[in-house]
């Protein structure tokens, strides 16, 4: 399916972190690095070189879009694809996020079994960003 693609996942919910890690590692076979806050992720930015950032939107302190802006400031991550995950099920909101420069927006609750396939599909079709429900 993929060749050990590396994904950085940031979310403040431990269970979501666990589920996502299971999904991406056990089913998708990705290499996953997880951070429990945007701040933690920022601190470690220089040390990671992921193929994809998977970011929660609503986080305490710094939220997803702010984190995206910070990531983009980092020379190494200017074009790294970013996918958001949010529980806000609003097409307009998703669109806003995509307009901020995200590859897509995945709505929670997500199907952890299908998530890896979804992400692979997105990475394969990077030239055509779209909103996924």
């Amino acid at each position: 399916m993929n060749n050990c693609k590396q994904i950085v996942h940031v979310d403040d919910d431990e269970d979501i972190l666990a589920i996502t890690r299971m999904s991406l590692e056990l089913i998708g076979g990705f290499e996953v690095t997880q951070y429990g806050s945007a701040k933690e992720a920022l601190e470690n930015l220089p040390r990671v070189e992921p193929d994809l950032f998977l970011l929660d939107v609503m986080m305490p302190g710094m939220d997803g879009p702010e984190l995206l802006a910070e990531i983009r400031k980092h020379p190494g991550h200017r074009s790294t694809p970013v996918v958001f995950m949010t529980a806000k099920a609003d097409p307009a909101f998703s669109e806003t996020l995509v307009n901020l420069g995200a590859l897509a927006c995945i709505t929670k609750p997500f199907d952890p079994v299908a998530l890896p396939e979804q992400l692979v599909g997105l990475l394969d079709e990077r030239h055509r960003p779209s909103t996924l429900q």
Binding site: I16, I19, S23, L26, A87, P109, P112
Partner: peptide, 25 residues
């Protein structure tokens, strides 16, 4: 709605794995 969906994500997330319990190491 947002507050309800977040815990539901966890429920549905774990349940999805339980349905495929064999994938657990």
């Amino acid at each position: 709605s947002h507050e309800l969906r977040t815990p539901l994500s966890v429920v549905l997330g774990y349940v999805a794995f339980l349905k495929k319990v064999e994938i657990y190491p």
